[in-house]
Amino acid sequence: MLNRIVLRRLMMDARIGVYAWEKEAPQPIVVDLEFDLPHGDACFSDDLADTVDYAAIVERLRAVALTQPHRLVEAMAQTMCTVLQTEFDLQYVRLTLMKLAPFPGSEVGIVVERERAPDFRQEAKFFSTSRETA
């Protein structure tokens, strides 16, 4: 069963840029995000405790954008994905980061997809414990 949360058009300011004029003030960016839920429990329980709190994710991404300066959209997108995977235990993340108006009438951005292997140590621990109690 696949359950994927989708966040679109998340606007925020970011410390991002190579040129001196970009470093003077935060630059506007837009983030689109998709991530898989580890299970479908929330679909049946209707309980926030059974899912990933996307308000917390939004807050964390805004903090990264403002407190961790990057020169390149590629590097900021990677940092955001790493934070999401490590702090929120997400296996799959697809993140689009668009830098608004870096040049008159334009946008520039990147789409990154990151998937990490499931933690088989937990499964192995479960199965060994199950066999011991059987």
Rank of each mutant, 00 (worst) to 15 (best):
Glu34Gly: 02
Asp53Pro: 02
Val30Gly: 00
Leu10Ile: 13
Ala14Arg: 04
Val58Gln: 12
Cys43Pro: 03
Arg15Ser: 10
Phe44Ser: 11
Asp46Gly: 08
Asp36Pro: 04
Arg62Leu: 01
Arg62Ala: 15
Val58Ser: 14
Ala55Val: 11
Leu33Lys: 03
Arg62His: 09
Pro26Cys: 05
Arg60Asn: 07
Asp41Phe: 09
Ile57Gln: 08
Val52Cys: 06
Gly40Leu: 03
Ala14Gly: 05
Glu59Pro: 00
Gln27Asp: 07
Ile29Tyr: 06
Ala20Asn: 14
Leu10Cys: 07
Asp50Phe: 08
Leu48Gln: 13
Ile29Thr: 02
Ala63Leu: 12
Ala42Gly: 03
Met11Glu: 14
Glu59Ile: 00
Pro38Phe: 11
Gln27Pro: 01
Leu37Asp: 01
Ala49Phe: 07
Val30Gln: 14
Leu33Thr: 00
Val52Arg: 08
Gln27Gly: 05
Asp47Val: 02
Met12Asp: 03
Gln27Asn: 10
Pro28Asn: 09
Val31His: 00
Asp46Ser: 10
Asp46Tyr: 14
Ala49Trp: 08
Asp32Gln: 04
Lys23Asp: 08
Ala63His: 15
Arg60Ala: 09
Glu34Tyr: 04
Ala56Leu: 14
Pro26His: 10
Arg15Met: 14
Gly40Pro: 00
Gln27Met: 06
Phe35Leu: 04
Ala63Trp: 13
Asp53Ile: 00
Val30Arg: 15
Cys43Glu: 10
Phe44Glu: 11
Val30Tyr: 06
Glu24Asn: 11
Val52Ser: 06
Phe35Trp: 04
Ala42Asn: 12
Tyr54Asn: 07
Ile57Ala: 06
Asp13Ser: 12
Ala56Pro: 02
Arg15Gln: 14
Ala14Leu: 06
Met12Ile: 00
Arg60Pro: 00
Asp50Ala: 12
Gly40Trp: 08
Ala14Ile: 01
Ala55Ile: 03
Tyr54Trp: 13
